[in-house]
């Protein structure tokens, strides 16, 4: 399968295989007017298989959540066909609405309107815990 390179835009690479569509929805990329490609199960020498998201425009996106999905993800900014910047995501202080608390004793289990919020409690180990009940995010 051939997906052309982009002239200006963002390439999110080394996404763990199978998580690309989840990120596509979480980042609300379906709302963009520009071209967006999600490539699933691309071969990777580093991690075997990976997903890739290509966004055909240099836009301002909050990509902090990527750090929670995997610190190995790379974000490449492309301008005039050249990569002008590459970075790894940092762990966000909190994650809202991406992970559901699985603790049946948590208040979120009976109050559907409450946002599921996970707070970074250990940056070194990348541990997030439910803001309400302290259950660890999995």
């Amino acid at each position: 399968m051939i997906i052309g390179s982009i002239t200006d835009g963002i390439v999110i690479d080394h996404i763990p295989a199978g998580r690309g569509m989840e990120l596509y929805h979480y980042l609300q990329l379906e709302q963009l007017e520009c071209q967006v490609a999600v490539i699933k199960n691309a071969p990777s020498t580093k991690i075997g298989k990976k997903d890739i998201i290509k966004i055909g425009e240099l836009i301002d996106l909050n990509l902090d959540i990527l750090g929670f999905v995997s610190p190995r993800i790379t974000i490449n900014y492309i301008q005039n066909g050249e990569r002008v910047k590459k970075r790894h995501p940092v762990l966000p202080e909190q994650i809202v609405g991406m992970v559901k608390c699985k603790n049946p004793r948590c208040i979120t289990s009976i109050e559907q309107e409450l946002p599921h919020i996970f707070v970074l409690t250990d940056r070194e180990k990348g541990i997030y815990r439910c803001r309400y009940c302290d259950t660890r995010a999995k």
Binding site: R105, L114, Y132, C133
Partner: peptide, 26 residues
């Protein structure tokens, strides 16, 4: 409250002090 985190939820909406008098096993 029998659910963990309920008093925290209450405190985020209330304009008066909320004391957690026990939330589940938390």
């Amino acid at each position: 409250h029998f659910k963990e985190g309920a008093p925290l939820v209450a405190s985020t909406f209330a304009h008066i002090p909320v004391i957690n008098a026990g939330d589940g096993g938390h």
